[in-house]
Nucleic acid binder design. Sequence first.
DNA 1: GACATCACG
DNA 2: GACGTACGTGATGTCC
Length: 933
Amino acid sequence: MSTTFGKGHHLHLIDGSAFIFRAYHALPPLTRKSDGLPIGAVSGFCNMVWKMLEETKGDDAPTHIAVIFDKGSHTFRNEMYDQYKANREAMPEDLRPQIPLTRSATEAFNIACKEKEGYEADDIIATLALQAREAGGRCTIISSDKDLMQLVGDGVEMLDAMKNKRIDRDGVFEKFGVYPERVVDVQALAGDSVDNVPGAPGIGIKTAALLINEYGDLDALLDRAGEIKQPKRRQTLIDHAEQIRLSRKLVLLDEKTPLDFTLDDLEVRDPDADKLMPFLAEMEFRTLTKRIANQLGVEPPVIEDTPAAAPDAPEVEDVPFDRAGYAKIGTGEELQNWIDRIYERGYVAVDTETTGLNEMTAELVGISLCVEAGEACYLPLIHKKHSGDDLFGSDELAEGQMPVTEALDMLKPVLEDPSILKIGQNMKYDAKIFAQVGITVAPIDDTMLMSYAMHGGLHGHGMDTLSERYLNHTPIPIKPLLGSGKSAITFDKVPLEDAVPYAAEDADITLRLWQQFKPSLHRAQVTRVYETLERPMVPVLAEMERTGIKVDRDTLSRMSNAFSQSMAGLEDEIHKLAGRSFNVGSPKQLGEILFDEMGLEGGKKGKTGAYATGADVLEDLATEHELPRRILDWRQLSKLKSTYTDALQDHINADTGRVHTSYSIAGASTGRLASTDPNLQNIPIRTEEGRRIREAFVAEEGKTLVALDYSQIELRILAHIADIPALKEAFQRGDDIHSMTASEMFDVPMEDMTPEIRRRAKAINFGVIYGISGFGLARNLRIPRGEAQGFIDRYFERFPGIRTYMDTTKAFAKEHGYVQTLFGRRIHTPNITAKGPHAGFAARAAINAPIQGTAADVIRRAMVRMPDAIAHLPAKMLLQVHDELLFEVEEGAQEDLISAARGVMESAPDPVVKLDVTLNVDAGEGPNWAVAH
DNA sequence: GACATCACG
DNA sequence: GACGTACGTGATGTCC
């Protein structure tokens, strides 16, 4: 007995896609127990629909209802603008199979389910809402999507289902600063980074509303744009009028979508238990099935409790941490028992205990294993006997330990078995320790790197942090066991009763983290990042670090002596100029002398109340007085001596005669590596004196060093990402990029370029990569701030894509809480929403991260491929310095190495990313690093 | 252990 | 209109 939709009728339109995405992101990754099918989003969707139906019962109950879905990714809007929604990320892998299930769910609930190829759900909603309004009825749109707000009014309202908040004309005004009929005008100006609607650069919702309210509507505004008082705003609107009109077309919903059904077809039907119950049972939604069956007054169907069918990733078990469950392995039988369990499982969490943190000198003390949460063991190997009163302990081995070789002979086949996954936290460390005893651990997973791929920028990735955050468990601290300072002992001196729980727990934690992280990688869409950019770095870096680089002690020692002499001379002069003797190395004393005693101008105190005496300050003072220049010279020598010529000698390994740095894979937020102990990524090169330090980095007899570095990789990536044709063309022509920029900006022909103009352009080019500001550039170039701002404005004018990139990147970061590299690495930006001075920092970091991070990804890809590519050559990769790789190669093979390695480096983005610019690699070769670079 | 300084890309 | 700014690192020395 259907009637014709009209007065007194009430249509509910549910934005299906919005429901799905909300459900997906709100819920943990649930899977169907019987077969592991992902169903988290379907479950959430059903819950939301059912809740909706329950809550809208009563006086204001809908008479008509439909769930509207998007269909197809290509719509008429793409015809207008091919970039529409172009930066939308791909649908998560585990969500895709759930989409058709939500359609089935809608039908199972006996609700009309509508979609139309080539149209967005929003257009269908607009069309139906208009029809309802024209028929004299009411319509409630269940969505909080701001794109739908243009429809509100005259009987049409929105309902935010999550907040249970109705949005009427006033609600829209709150959000947009205009009433619904002007919403598209505001959106056209403000644009939308999510849908990639361009809008007017630099104009947000606030400004847009202001303008629209002042001029009435968008057409009037654009016609009278010349009257706008603010010069920049005026110019923006005049320059981008076409883009703004296009934006309006993109956001304007099509209220005339051709539909093959009428409002009457959407009449509310009671749920049909015979349809709904089987569907819910098939999905294995136990709670929801019971609840709905109860409500409908039917018997809930029985859902078989089928055991999980051998899933790849086990369910995360909520087992309490219990130290009593940790075993000590003391015999071959006990170890064999554990090995059997490992083979049964197919994976094992492994952790090594050693005598120190330096993998090159640390000795293996024991090994812990874990195959199941809560069940872990520790295999002590060389723990020393603990003699009660003797503070110095004993060299005698404690009892109850297997002979080292017997234990390792048993474990080696397991650790090298390609069918057994070895799970570790910071596996590079353990892999290097095992490599010492001739064991090549593979294949591996690393929980630290999983966390880095998923949570980069959010927090650290050490075991303690991860355990506390993700397992809600504080690991046993190491400090009480080892002590600190001079009385600290090494782990082999820790009594077994303390060592077993500590060591076993680390393996237990690692396994639990892995159980939790493994399925989350997909959810966070970083599986490929982890598998191609993080995990494969472990063996590559372990090998490089173990190889090390030869450093000539005599060269360093001679330089150190020379520096000492020069410093002593300078020190005398400095004391004479100062009028008294003081510690030249103390910035505090220096500040007092310069600004209080000598009365030089320009003393500025920082927040700690001390005068700033940094190089830039002294540089400015150097024109006034001789002292600052001497200080600068002294500081340079002091730095070179202490950090390089002296400290470096202490890092020469006694056994190998080489220096072995350690790279942190998960240290830098952008994806770069960091080098520590010693840092070999900041060996001097910018000054002639410093550069000579590199002469001490030498090739072995009969070998030579080869250095290959990417030329201008970050600027090339910027040209690609921000899509700057002029920059791309210049790179393809092989122009000097800074001269080109200078020529373009300052209208100087390339052939008339002066070094000074080029220097300015270069500073601006780098500034752009760092998220330029007038202040920063002014300080860098030592020019007035206004002048610097003028340069920046001109740069944006000549390369407008840069500003768009900066704006869209910031908007993306605000929207998602992270930014991405071209290879999908995510860098979280939690401070992007901060207020005050923090905001500027976060915004610049967000702008820089995709550029620096993409460059980091590129060289990682090259490094991962390098071992195979050069396996046929007598060459080894030694060092990475962000955009440079250093190799040691047998004399005579250098040309072959250069060509092989260059090929790998230049094609590193293939086949995942096709850059619009080629990557160029420069090569050098010589007996030491100073010559090779 | 915080801070200032300075080495690198 | 003011805030306070170039991005990413690590090591060293001073000073409390």
